[in-house]
Amino acid sequence: MNINKKQIKFISAVTGLAVLTAATSFAALPEQAAAKWLNSTRTMSEVEGQLLQTGSATALFDEAVDSRIPLQTQEGKMLQIPIKQGVVDDKPAVVLKDTAIQAGIIKTIIVSSPNKVDVGPGVAYLDYAKVIKWQQNVDAGYERWRLDPLQVAHKEGKNYGFTDKDTFTIVKRLAQSELSRHGEIHVKVTHNGKDYTMILVKPFGGGDAIWTTYKVVGQYRPAPPAQTTGKTLFSTDKYADWSWHKERYLKDMAFATVVDYNSQLNQDKRIPENVLSKVKDIDYNKKVVLFAYLGTAPSGGYGVGIEKVVMNGNKMTVTVHTKSPRAGSAVTLAITQPSDYVVLDKTIFDIWGGVDITFVDQNGKVLSKNKLTISHR
């Protein structure tokens, strides 16, 4: 038997991950393919071992350095078989298991690569041949946009008829779900006046694992933002064109209702003094300050602005608008600390039982809640 005419089948132990099953002879492995080597012991019949020895095994791998793999027969005899482990991409992303050599056919080739992504149980109906290739490209430093869910939605959304003129907004994040144990994100897309939802999944685990589209459903009907009725105390449209393009907000983001500058500075360390000093000279006997701090940004291009304050009974909703730079956009490299504030009359908060204050972003996501009660002494 001349085993260089046999097929190699890559069969994953992962559910739903049957990839690269097309006929691929040893000789057909591309010269540029990465060659990984593994010394291991496998149990096989002596007949199967003899099949491997039949013919010129070393000739199967022209220009390749042989690796002697000891194969233990069922009778306890050791056979030294030269064999090459071939990987059809420069940077394999998955770890396959359970090599079985039967009748001279290698059914599964172990692809071991340290610090690579962890293959989950598999997201049903994904084309894993493509998904693995995309992950390998990212590992090699290409197509890094696949790590950003919003960029993935923009680019892959074109396959569903969406355009760059549409609005893309992340409305739900799940660290794991029944659909994908490594993560699921819902992106609302407003197209021609209608809302749709792109469901993105992480097919693999790990910090540099890609996102891809699972499906698109429509129309999306979001829950109404917190407190949209009532009396408008403040409003501006100068932040209307802002968009947030990052996966999450900055970790030291903070909001405050300031009734006394010194007390705020001494008792609440979330907002740095150099940032809070903007409201140092306010007359707090008559005024209250609503303060929004985006956090410590790694570059320019970030911003936060208070665009609306609405009062309804004893409930106040402060809507802030955020922005972040798109990937690849030109920004200053200096660290920034964006913030904004609105000054209101103190009498507004002089309500029996106090005022419940909620800060939300432009998508209605609750960012902070607090209660202010004016004390009369």
Rank of each mutant, 00 (worst) to 15 (best):
S235G: 03
V275H: 00
I271R: 09
N266V: 11
K280V: 04
W244R: 00
R248Y: 06
D237G: 00
S235C: 03
T232A: 06
V259I: 15
S243P: 06
N274E: 09
Y284D: 12
N266Y: 12
K278I: 07
E247V: 11
T229Q: 09
T229M: 05
T228W: 11
K231F: 09
Y249Q: 12
K251R: 11
T257P: 06
H245D: 11
M253I: 14
N266D: 12
K278N: 11
Y249C: 07
I282Q: 01
D237L: 00
N266T: 15
T232H: 03
R270S: 15
V259T: 15
A226W: 12
E247K: 08
Y261A: 01
E247T: 09
L276N: 02
K269T: 13
I271E: 08
L265N: 06
L233M: 02
D268H: 13
A240E: 07
P225D: 09
L265C: 05
R248T: 07
K280F: 04
K280P: 03
P272Q: 06
K280L: 06
Y284E: 10
D260P: 14
Q264K: 09
S243D: 11
E273N: 06
G230P: 05
S277T: 04
D252M: 09
N274D: 09
V259R: 15
S235Q: 05
D252F: 04
N266E: 12
A254P: 10
V259H: 15
D241S: 10
K269G: 12
T232L: 04
R270G: 13
D237S: 01
K280Q: 07
Y239C: 11
M253R: 11
S277K: 07
E273C: 04
Q227Y: 12
A226H: 14
S277I: 06
T257I: 12
L276P: 00
D281W: 15
F234N: 01
V258Y: 02
T236M: 01
Q227I: 09
L250D: 06
S235V: 01
T228Y: 10
A256P: 00
M253S: 13
Q227P: 08
D260K: 14
E273T: 05
T232W: 00
K246S: 10
H245K: 14
K231V: 12
E273V: 05
K246A: 14
R270K: 15
T228P: 10
P225L: 07
G230W: 02
D252A: 07
K251I: 08
L250Y: 08
T229W: 03
A254V: 10
W244S: 04
V275N: 02
S243C: 12
D241N: 12
I282D: 00
E247H: 08
Y249I: 11
V275K: 00
V275Q: 00
A226Q: 12
P225R: 07
A226V: 13
A223Y: 06
K278P: 06
S235H: 05
P224N: 14
K246C: 08
V258Q: 03
V279P: 02
Y284S: 13
K280C: 03
L233T: 00
P272W: 06
P272Y: 04
S263L: 13
V279K: 00
L233D: 01
P222M: 10
T232E: 04
R248M: 05
T236E: 02
I282R: 04
G230C: 04
Q267Y: 09
K251F: 10
